[in-house]
Design a protein around this nucleic acid. Structure first.
Lengths: 387, 387
DNA sequence: AGGTGATGGAGAACCGTTTCTCCGTGAGTC
DNA sequence: GACTCACGGAGAAACGGTTCTCCATCACCT
């Protein structure tokens, strides 16, 4: 070990007020080169254990923390993943508007963290300069609208993008979504079995994938079984409009004897509307809504809900993204291996690889004429294991 | 304008597969130096408008995006703010467990974004190497426990830290909290006025500031008015334990005729417990709980809630933090100006400057013997303006 | 004619790592 | 005894910006 404890590198002897110790300081204090320090701390290079531990010791003593910025600049990896959330109205983003987003984001954060990444929350509406000023290794986008310029630019600049929700016309690296069609069909069947003669739908006016696919599935089912569609639409982001729409639906002359509501608050709203019209649930009206909230276990009566299992979605999205980040850098081949049940997946230059995740119907009193069983029964066999 | 369109800088002529355009590429294409490009794009230096716009045009054409990493390395600013959320149990973090966190985080994100910063969500329990690998300009910590090593290290390394919740024994730059004592006293007075003879409390077992201050205020009030304390505690992070505790409280021989529950689900749980014991609300039992959820507007009967106004908290926390980041770099003088009503604030080397924010009591049927008024009445005059 | 100030812009250091290249040295080999 | 290797580690070039310093040039003034 050579004695190189004097000024190493170009650091000027003067000034330099006491700031954080840099790698050069550690090198000087340990009497080695900065190369050795870097290698010792990162477990690289060929160094005897003695040197390694000595350097580590010195670094610890000096409270050395490598500069994330410098590392990012050099390696091209920031360890940061963007989480783009949609914006409704003037509020920056829904995020917690519906429990779905909250749960999904939570799971995503957790999954990312488990693999050494952190999540940056970025509303889609945020000023361009804000998120273009952040070094992102990849981005998760939630339900991107068609031709989303943000997604396009990200993708074009080489940043992997994985979307929650089948993208309409966006070039994404991969996507994950529920099998909304299967879910709706399962619900309609369930209601039919429970004795429903005319099933209504409470849906949204927006054109996002979820709303579109679900509504289409409903309409298709109606066409197939020969029922006249009975549905009302409202802007899903408006909490007040939901109650009004629920009321409208039950006030129709062709009042349905069963209703599925696509959005979280629909259950409460429909229940209230039913009460106003003197309809008993489930005797006069069967009720199901899509929700992640467990308040529906405690309503009077408890309401059957469809869970989209947002945790699983969030976990999967992040894992796919990180696989893409750490996998083959360029090229189409995203390493979508071993990950969850993939119902549908394409390769080559066609549409990006997508993964469909199952949903779960939590059957409660509101969707059963005479409460026989109250066990949990998924619409289709769900895969074992995983969150 | 000199013709310097040839190889500028040290970039090697060979290789260099087509990647993102750098500032050197822009400089070469525009026939200027990189200094000029930087100045033109950042609005600095003395440049004629003609040069400025020309450079901007070229940069646009080349799709130039400055490297966030390089900028961060040079300027020492990343535009990133950490949001540390507490961990309960095995779940990575509560975040959306209670609506309070969700709302607060949402407001914080929005406020940060408005000032050009993005938020990184970082559970306090995350591995050291994860968040030490991120260049943070500052951090928001939610209710840090005493002697939080994470906070200490951050603070020591010069990163501004602002906490939501009065810190026990942590060196933070500033903190923001509700006036929990005033809130509880206001509630107790409100219940007394409504005719309560013996007021009970449903509280938590943890030692966080909120629980401690609130409970202490209750005990102090009991002592003052000469009432024997009637309270039950339970681990607040356990959803099932709340219902059990609510039941315990109403099963006591010295059953209270009014109850305040410190946590969000307490209202529902207490209502259910009251029903089990055949107690009518509000006739036999007055009920108030602390919650940000509006489900309590629709319960039977509607329940009076205390809102901690998490949006205001989140906004204030972030603004304080960014003020600290952009203000005087070192030194104690945080530029806590014009921001909200500061009840309590110290300077110098004493405790860090804190800001107390008012709460809001939303009076509903559950806390009034005979429903007279149902207007919103804050426990104390709240300041006009702001979110 | 020389000084002066404003204007426009170039040069180069620097931010703090990672990593590629290469070098000295001592032990084993033919 | 010259050669080859493995070992341990040093040097220096990036990474891609920002910014401090300084230099022409030219008009204007005295």
């Amino acid at each position: 070990m050579t004695a190189a404890a004097n000024q190493s590198g170009r650091r000027p002897t003067t000034s330099r007020r006491l700031e954080r110790a840099g790698i050069r300081d550690v090198a000087a204090a340990a009497g080695v080169s900065i190369t050795t320090v870097s290698d010792a701390l990162n477990g690289k290079g060929r160094l005897p254990d003695e040197t390694r531990s000595r350097v580590r010791e010195v670094a610890e003593r000096l409270g050395y923390r490598p500069s994330a910025a410098a590392r990012t600049l050099r390696t091209g990896r920031s360890g940061l993943i963007g989480l783009t959330v949609t914006t409704y109205g003037e509020e920056p983003f829904t995020f917690t508007e519906f429990a779905y987003f909250a749960e999904m984001a939570r799971a995503a954060t957790s999954a990312a963290l488990g693999r050494g990444y952190a999540l940056v929350v970025l509303p889609a509406s945020s000023r361009h300069d804000v998120w273009s000023n952040i070094a992102l290794d990849g981005t998760v986008v939630i339900d991107p609208p068609d031709q989303d310029p943000l997604v396009s630019e990200l993708y074009r600049s080489g940043v992997p993008v994985v979307s929650d929700g089948k993208p309409g016309n966006c070039p994404v690296t991969a996507w994950v979504d529920n099998d909304h069609e299967a879910a709706v069909l399962g619900i309609l069947d369930h209601l039919s079995e429970a004795g429903a003669r005319r099933i209504g739908l409470l849906t949204g006016t927006s054109t996002d994938t979820y709303t579109r696919l679900s509504t289409d599935a409903y309409l298709g089912w109606c066409h197939k079984v020969g029922q006249e569609p009975v549905y009302e639409t409202y802007p899903a982001h408006d909490p007040a409009a939901g109650a009004v729409a629920a009321d409208r639906l039950l006030a129709r002359p062709d009042r349905p004897d069963a209703v599925y509501g696509l959005f979280d608050p629909n259950g409460t709203d429909l229940l209230a509307a039913a009460r106003r019209y003197g309809l008993r649930v489930p005797d006069d009206l069967l009720l199901i809504c899509c929700s992640e909230s467990d308040v529906y276990a405690a309503t009077e009566p408890p309401i059957t809900t469809l869970s989209l299992k947002p945790r699983r979605i969030g976990t999967t999205v992040v894992n796919l993204l990180i696989d893409a980040i750490e996998g083959v850098d360029s090229g189409t081949g995203v390493d979508v291996g071993r990950l969850f049940p993939a119902r549908y997946r394409t390769a080559g230059t066609g549409p990006p690889p997508g993964t469909l995740m199952p949903t779960e119907l939590i059957v409660r009193a509101s969707s059963q004429r005479r409460s026989t069983r109250t066990t949990v029964s998924p619409p289709r066999p769900r895969p074992a294991g995983e969150a």
